[in-house]
Amino acid sequence: TEEVEKIVRELQKRGVSQEEIQRILKRNGIDPRDVEHVVRRLR
Rank of each mutant, 00 (worst) to 15 (best):
I24A: 05
R41Q: 13
R9L: 06
Q22D: 05
Q18H: 12
R27A: 14
E3D: 11
H37V: 12
K13H: 08
V4C: 11
E5H: 05
L25I: 02
L25C: 01
E36Q: 05
R41H: 13
E20I: 06
E36N: 02
V39L: 15
D31A: 04
R40T: 11
V39T: 05
K6E: 06
E2K: 12
E5I: 09
E19A: 11
G15Y: 05
R33G: 05
E36L: 06
V16G: 02
E5P: 01
L11S: 01
D34V: 15
Q22L: 14
V4S: 02
V4I: 14
V35N: 00
V38N: 00
R41T: 11
D31Q: 02
R27L: 13
T1A: 10
V39G: 01
K26E: 14
N28Y: 13
K26R: 10
V39E: 02
K13N: 10
D31E: 04
V38G: 01
E36P: 02
I7W: 10
Q22A: 14
D31H: 06
S17W: 03
V4G: 01
E3S: 09
R9W: 05
K13T: 09
K6P: 02
L11A: 04
R40C: 03
K13Q: 11
V16S: 05
E3P: 06
H37I: 14
L25Q: 00
L25K: 00
V16P: 01
D34K: 09
I30K: 02
I21M: 10
L11H: 01
H37S: 13
R23E: 13
D31W: 01
Q12H: 14
R14D: 06
L42C: 03
E2M: 09
I30S: 03
E10R: 08
R43G: 14
P32V: 04
R43H: 14
N28P: 05
R14P: 01
E3I: 10
R27D: 13
I7K: 06
V38S: 02
G29D: 04
Q22W: 11
L42S: 03
G29N: 05
R23D: 11
R14V: 08
I24C: 04
T1I: 14
P32E: 07
I21D: 00
R27H: 11
R27I: 10
E19Q: 11
E20R: 08
I30R: 02
I7F: 08
H37G: 08
H37P: 02
G29Q: 02
L25G: 00
S17E: 07
Q22V: 15
D34G: 02
E5G: 03
Q18I: 15
Q18R: 12
R23I: 10
L25M: 07
S17I: 05
I21T: 01
R40A: 11
Q12I: 15
E20P: 00
G15S: 03
L25R: 00
S17K: 08
L42E: 03
Q22T: 13
H37R: 14
H37E: 15
E36I: 05
L42V: 06
V35E: 01
G15M: 04
I7H: 05
